[in-house]
Design a binder for these strands. Structure first.
Lengths: 358, 358
DNA sequence: GTGAAAGCGCTAACAC
DNA sequence: GTGTTAGCGCTTTCAC
């Protein structure tokens, strides 16, 4: 792995100038075939590969798009741990959000000739992965709430940034492009379904604290309740810290142990919690959906694997990745005006067994 | 997006030299706190982010690892298309190999402070994605048969490269590090199970042409047959071009229509084909596993979703990604000797319904 | 603790 | 077609 050969080495070995070597790689047709072959030959002999760094520096573009997402490793490990024996589903069947988005972005990036740089953002500060990614790509997407707002603000001044999933955080970031899913619409429809089609009226909503996504979903829930004349509080009936299976299981116990009539339906702000609830309910001998309905949100693979299968709202994460890339590419090619773009992707309420359908 | 601010801008604005600005980002402690704050402040005001390219050029390292994988988009689209209505499983539940490997690599890379650059390799030539990736990373992994051997040969002279899945191709690449799974062992055990535990003797093996993985798997199959005195040919009973569901379905028809006694078991070289076979068998009214056993290979998520659930051999793709990163990092830090490493990861034969178990 | 200066390997005018 | 010459923005000795 001594020192990598450079244009100079190749130029010297093939008796041309470095400019010609460069041309062979950038625009082969601008070099006489014979010369080109000679250059390519010595490049091969030397083991020459153009330095992406030097190229990027000189040409001011990298041909790479990026994605920053939250460090899910902890919650993930946790959910794996408490899933318990016999249920390997979480381990490899469950595609995380980030996986889906990565896939979508990679596909779209490929179509446009870009590669994809991915990194989970750990710590903040100047040493953050965010800065690293930002410094190495032509533009990138960030999963909402992954990084401090102010950092994004700074970075978005020098390159296109698109925020994914999760509403606009504040007016400060109003100049950022932004793609979200129809959280409110999806939850409103699901709640309406429970009320009108299944005749349920005692609904309990469970979500995390301080999550804009949860807030949007709860808003839809509340709207549907009010529209149907069903009582609903101003906030979720129960708030958890992390939206994991463990927390969903615990929340279910707490809800069932509360005095007063048992809820007819448990509406969770995500699938993971709903799955945890399913476990708890089975343990307690409460039948789903006969005794109580359960719904989730997201449409993760696991939602189709559990029994009963989970009624949920599917989010088009893959498409979100694709749209993000399309938008970035448009920005980079100047096809997109100055105005910030705000896009809302439709979701798909999916009725399965846990609400009493089928 | 005008022109991005540089060290010079920050230096000037904060009244220090560019060296100091650089130090603030590389080694904050080597700068007096007061100076540091001043620099950071103007950086923030200017919207400064260090250029990864310039950094990489000057320091000769990128802090990025790479992965090149084959362009699966065609086969994937195909399998999605023919899956037909009502079966959305393929669409978002099925994690592809590459997804699993990406996840494994990303996790491991993160632990070591690296980001991950991923790219599907399309065309060959100097313009290939391979060269692009190679030029932008400190080291990378390649899914077997993704790129021409000679290209790898050249590149591996200047940076660590590890081949994933699939045996050594040739002696030319003997100096490359290499991680594979125990294809032969896994298939041998599965075939043995069918013969000894289920008493089956008329086995048909279906695999692709020219795939080293298939060759290794078939080898295990043949060994198990011979060890049990079961007749077996020198090659798979049927060879397909692509290992898709469609081909698996077609192959099943062909096999069942052949004259002579019907096979007691269909052993496919991957899960996708086996799933296709399941569809065909159901259509023809052949019961699985009562009338015929079916097995796959890989352990994709879909294998657990189909009915009957598919007996298969699970490959630890995620772990493969992790091991690849560990190996690359060891190479980069000089912790790994000069000798090429060759690693074989164990697989997990997984007995489910389609072979008659459970 | 901070500054000055010499590259890192390539691209992009601009000449020839 | 091909060569010359400046940088691109940073890191890195080596002085001070």
């Amino acid at each position: 792995m001594s020192t990598a050969p450079t244009v100079y080495d190749v130029a010297e070995r093939s008796g041309v100038s470095i400019a010609t070597v460069s041309r062979v790689y950038r625009n082969p047709d601008s070099v006489r075939a014979q010369t080109r072959e000679r250059v390519l030959a010595s490049a091969r002999e030397l083991g020459y590969v153009p330095s992406g760094n030097a190229r990027g520096l000189a040409s001011r573009s990298t041909g790479v798009l990026g994605l920053c997402f939250p460090d899910y490793s902890d919650p993930d490990a946790e959910s794996e741990a408490e899933t318990g024996a016999g249920d390997e589903a979480d381990d490899d069947a469950a595609m995380l959000y980030s996986d889906q988005i990565i896939r979508g972005m990679e596909r779209a990036a490929r179509r446009h000739g870009y590669a994809l740089l991915i990194a989970a953002s750990l710590k903040g500060g100047p040493e953050s992965q965010l800065a690293k990614v930002a410094g190495r790509v032509d533009g990138f997407a960030v999963l909402a709430r992954t990084v401090p707002t102010e950092d994004l603000d700074v970075i978005s001044r020098r390159q296109p940034v698109v925020m994914l999933a999760g509403p606009r955080e504040s007016d400060d970031l109003d100049h950022l492009d932004h793609i979200e899913t129809a959280n409110t619409d999806g939850q409103r429809e699901l709640t309406r379904h429970l009320i009108e089609d299944h005749g349920l009226r005692r609904l309990a909503y469970i979500g995390a604290e301080e999550s804009p996504d949860v807030a949007a979903r709860f808003r839809g829930h509340a709207e549907a309740c009010r529209a149907a004349g069903v009582p609903v509080s101003d906030a979720p009936d129960l708030r958890v810290a992390m939206m994991t299976q463990a927390e969903g299981a615990r929340a279910t116990d707490e809800l069932l142990d509360r005095p007063g009539p048992r809820p007819e339906a448990l509406l969770f702000a995500n699938d993971q919690m709903a799955v945890g609830a399913l476990h708890t309910l089975e343990r307690r001998g409460v039948r789903v959906p006969d005794d109580i309905a359960v719904t989730g949100f997201d449409g993760i693979a696991l939602s189709r694997l559990v029994r009963p299968t989970l009624t949920t709202v599917r989010q088009p994460m893959r498409r979100m990745g694709e749209e993000a890339v399309e938008l970035l590419v448009r920005r980079l090619t100047g096809q997109q005006g100055k105005e910030p773009v705000s896009m809302m992707l439709p979701v798909s309420p999916t009725r399965r067994e846990s609400c009493g359908c089928t």
